[in-house]
Each structure stands twice: as structure tokens, then as C-alpha cells.
Simulated assay, not measured.
Amino acid sequence: MTLKGLHDTIQGAFLWFDCHLWEFDINDRRYGLPHDDDFGFEKVYNATTTRLTKLRDSGITEFLYTYDMGDNWEHHVEVLKLFEMPKGARLPVFIDGKGRTPPEDVGGAPGFEMFLKAMADPSHEEHDNLLQWYGKPFDQDNIETAVVKALMNRLANMRRSKK
């Protein structure tokens, strides 16, 4: 899998829509989507061609993934265990999760904290606005396992068709 594939997997796990900038910061190198102009910033390495096996073979076991530079969702990614993929297995696959992820465009960690308070309290001044914005009550315990599994299956099928 490439870093772009990992990005897609994280997007699916979080039920996000991949509509913001993102990057991986690995050993002081930035990886993201290639672009024609670097706008005067440091070089961005191509996440569509950088494979996770390259990181593994280099001994890299942790790195940073940032999504939505405005909301600034920073994810510390740590490799806990390596395993041989069973023959015929399709990846990615959703194994388990805990807690509902923040909605897209909620305003980063401070916005999500306010969102949780407002959604839990019908008397909160922002409750009705946020309920309308989100479209339904927010259940922190419902991670929508079936939806996440379906997204992972879709990604696995896309990876298989590219081979």
C-alpha cells in the first residue's frame, strides 16, 4: 500500500470526505500529492508512489499524518505489529474501533469539543444549528461499523483492480 492508500484508509475509517489538504511528516520529509509549483515551500514527496514497505524496511515505526490544515487534525501513526498478509486477503480491512470520529469541518479539536457539548444539551444555544448542520443526533458510541466496513471493502476492491 502507498501512503496515498493509507490516507484513503484513514479517510474511510473517520467517515471523512477527502476534501482538504493532507500530508504525512516522516523523518523530516513531507509526503502528499504532487503538484507543479512548490509555492516556495519545502519539497513534497509523492505519496502516490511511496510504499509502506519502504518505511518498514527503513525501520520507521511512527510518523505524523495531518488532515485539513485549517482544522489541523494531527494523527500520530504508530506501527504496533507487522504480520504476513494471508494469501488471498484483501486490505484494508476494518477490525475494530471505539468512539465516533469528529465530523468533517467541525472546527478542529476545539470545535469538536463545543460540538459535543452542544449536541448533548438541547438547551445549548448552538444545539439546533449544529443538529441541522450535522443532520441527525450525534451518538458518540455509534461508529457506524457497517459503513466503515463497506468503505474498507470498496478500497480493497479498488486496490485489487489496480493490480
Rank of each mutant, 00 (worst) to 15 (best):
A156R: 01
R56L: 14
E125M: 08
W16E: 03
D36H: 11
T66Q: 14
S161D: 14
L82H: 13
F24L: 01
E78F: 08
N46F: 00
E62Y: 11
I95R: 13
K163P: 05
E125Y: 09
Y67S: 06
Y65E: 06
H20A: 02
T2M: 03
D96N: 14
R90G: 08
T50D: 10
I143R: 09
N153K: 05
L131N: 11
G97H: 07
F14L: 15
T2A: 09
T61N: 10
E113V: 07
L33I: 12
D68G: 02
Y31F: 15
N142T: 00
L82A: 10
G59T: 03
D37K: 07
E113N: 12
K98E: 14
P34Y: 10
K43H: 14
K117R: 15
H20G: 07
R29Q: 14
P92Q: 00
A47C: 08
W133K: 06
L80S: 06
N142A: 10
F63G: 07
L52S: 02
V93L: 11
R51A: 08
G70F: 11
W73C: 08
K136I: 05
H127M: 13
I60R: 05
R30T: 12
S58W: 13
A13K: 11
P92Y: 03
F115P: 03
G32L: 01
K163R: 11
A109Q: 14
W16P: 06
H7G: 05
R159M: 00
I26Q: 01
E113Y: 13
T50S: 12
K136S: 08
N142Q: 11
V148H: 05
I95E: 09
N27S: 12
P103T: 03
S123F: 01
T50G: 07
E74Y: 04
G40Y: 07
D139C: 04
D28L: 09
R90V: 00
R30A: 02
L155C: 01
H124K: 05
D18F: 00
G5D: 13
K87F: 08
N46S: 14
D71Q: 00
F83S: 15
F41I: 01
L6V: 06
A109T: 13
S161H: 03
A118N: 11
G59W: 05
F17T: 15
T66R: 15
Y31R: 07
K43T: 15
T101H: 14
F94W: 14
T9V: 01
A120M: 03
R154A: 02
D68Y: 03
H76P: 14
V147C: 10
M85V: 15
D141S: 09
P34R: 09
I10D: 12
L131E: 08
L55C: 00
D68W: 00
T145C: 11
P34F: 04
P122Y: 03
L91D: 02
W16N: 00
V147L: 13
A13R: 01
K163M: 06
W73L: 02
E74G: 04
